[in-house]
Computed example of a mutant assay.
Amino acid sequence: MQVLEYRIRTAGAAHLDQARAVMLDTVHRDFGTGYVPRWHADIVDPESFYLTPPRHTLLVAVDETDGTVAATAALDARGPAHPPNPRWLAERYPSGTTAQLRRVYVRPEHRRRGLARRLVDGLLDFARTDGGYRAAYLHAYPHSPGAMGLWRTLGEVVCDEREELPDGGSGVVHFEIPLTPLLK
């Protein structure tokens, strides 16, 4: 069995096409939505969403054997919007002081190797270094392979729309991830 090695790094212009492909493949395959402009504009233009703003970042896991991007993870200072999210959630995690984790996606052939956790650790380090973030937030789709297990080990569920909203909302689960390092 070949042992794969990965390097976690801040994405640069040279990584954007491959990172975009990882993200688009994920929304097609795992979410079944395909590209939806109001939800996925950052995927088409990751440079202006994640590389240009100083408090945002896009990390990639690069497969050292062939130089390809195997996984992505992004962070920005935009809190969850209302609507579609509950008003109280948008108020609890306001833009500017909330580090929202986004696009933590791993290609299927690279899953179960700890890449998502390593990428999230990098995002949280970025948020801590920034110093202006009070909370780290994300939402996850329960049917996304491996997502719920990972997020439950890293954070706390603050709203499960399937259980807490009368109509089930959009079916997502909202998490807060501690910004203080966890003892390992």
Rank of each mutant, 00 (worst) to 15 (best):
L16G: 02
D17E: 15
D17V: 12
Q18R: 12
A19D: 00
R20A: 10
A21P: 00
A21H: 05
A21E: 09
A21T: 09
L24K: 09
D25P: 03
T26A: 15
T26R: 11
T26E: 04
V27R: 04
V27T: 09
H28C: 13
R29E: 15
R29L: 14
R29K: 07
D30G: 06
D30Q: 15
F31G: 01
F31E: 09
F31T: 00
F31Q: 10
G32T: 11
G34E: 05
Y35S: 00
V36Y: 05
P37R: 06
P37H: 04
P37F: 06
R38Q: 14
R38A: 14
R38H: 14
R38I: 11
R38E: 15
W39C: 09
H40Q: 06
H40Y: 04
A41C: 08
A41Q: 10
A41I: 07
D42C: 07
I43F: 04
I43W: 04
I43N: 00
I43G: 01
V44R: 09
P46E: 07
P46L: 10
E47L: 05
E47W: 10
E47F: 08
S48D: 12
S48Y: 06
S48N: 13
S48Q: 13
F49H: 15
F49T: 14
F49M: 06
F49Q: 10
Y50W: 11
L51H: 08
T52I: 15
P53K: 02
R55N: 15
H56R: 12
H56N: 15
H56E: 12
T57A: 15
L58N: 01
V60H: 01
V60F: 05
A61H: 06
V62Q: 14
V62W: 04
V62T: 05
D63W: 13
D63T: 10
E64Y: 08
T65L: 15
T65I: 10
T65A: 15
T65V: 07
D66F: 13
D66K: 08
G67W: 07
T68H: 11
T68Q: 10
V69E: 00
A70Q: 10
A70G: 05
A70D: 04
A70K: 07
A71K: 05
A71L: 09
T72M: 03
T72V: 04
A74Y: 00
L75I: 14
L75Q: 06
D76H: 11
A77W: 01
G79D: 01
G79P: 08
G79M: 04
P80F: 02
P80Q: 00
A81C: 03
A81Y: 09
H82Y: 05
H82P: 00
P83Y: 00
P84L: 04
P86T: 08
P86C: 03
P86R: 02
P86D: 08
R87S: 07
R87Y: 03
W88A: 10
W88F: 08
W88D: 09
W88K: 00
L89C: 13
L89M: 11
L89R: 12
L89F: 13
A90Y: 02
A90V: 01
A90L: 12
E91V: 12
R92S: 09
R92C: 01
R92G: 02
P94T: 06
S95L: 03
S95C: 07
G96H: 06
G96R: 10
T97R: 13
T97H: 06
T97G: 06
T97L: 01
T98F: 11
A99C: 11
Q100N: 14
L101I: 15
L101K: 00
L101S: 03
